[in-house]
């Protein structure tokens, strides 16, 4: 048995660091914690915790079943805590749901979008999965879990930087 302890965070056990200011504004560092963001927002609220021009990293608490989403480009999901299922459907007519030039994910109104079943992923902590272009996807978690999505700023991205980031020294 190894006596090494690698510390990962979780919804119930995270210890946040911070910015110790010498001569700067803490807002410049856009410092937040993905577990805290997931814990304090509604399930499947896709809150931006990182932004770089049009690109974002969204953090969300997976709990129960999410709506269906689709996207005109690849996205990737990284499970940071818990277990998350990802259900994938190849949309019969993806352009009916999202313009091919559209950026970011869009939420589908359908309870079950029309298309062929592609398959299923079950992600545990540290597992990264592909959310391929042209697919619809939804998440399901029996117990609260934390996911990050590598994507582009879009309709479902929530920005609330002043609420999630360190603003004082």
């Amino acid at each position: 048995m190894s006596d090494v302890i690698t510390r990962f965070g979780s919804l119930d056990d995270y210890e946040k660091g911070g910015v110790e200011i010498i001569n700067d504004d803490p807002r410049n560092y856009v410092f937040s914690n993905v577990f805290e963001v997931a814990k304090t927002n509604a399930p499947y609220a896709r809150v931006a915790v990182g932004i770089n021009f049009e690109y974002v990293i969204e953090a969300a608490r997976a709990e129960g079943t999410s709506p269906w989403y689709t996207c005109a480009h690849d996205e990737f999901v990284l499970c940071m805590d818990g277990d998350v299922e990802v259900h994938l459907v190849k949309l019969a007519r993806p352009d009916d749901h999202v313009d091919p030039e559209h950026e970011g994910a869009v939420q589908l109104a359908d309870a079950m979008p029309e298309g062929r079943k592609m398959g299923r992923l079950v992600l545990g902590r540290g597992h990264q999965g592909l959310l391929p272009v042209g697919a619809a996807y939804r998440f399901h978690a029996e117990k609260p879990a934390v996911i990050l999505v590598q994507t582009i700023l879009g309709d479902v991205t929530v920005q609330k930087w002043a609420e999630i980031c360190q603003t004082t020294a």
């Binding site: 510390r7 995270y14 660091g17 910015v19 001569n23 560092y29 915790v49």
Partner: peptide
């Protein structure tokens, strides 16, 4: 090269370097 800040990042923390 003058110091501006010190950042302690723990598991789950995310931040930007300006």
């Amino acid at each position: 090269g003058k110091p501006r800040a010190r950042v302690l990042a723990r598991a789950g923390d995310i931040c930007c370097m300006p």
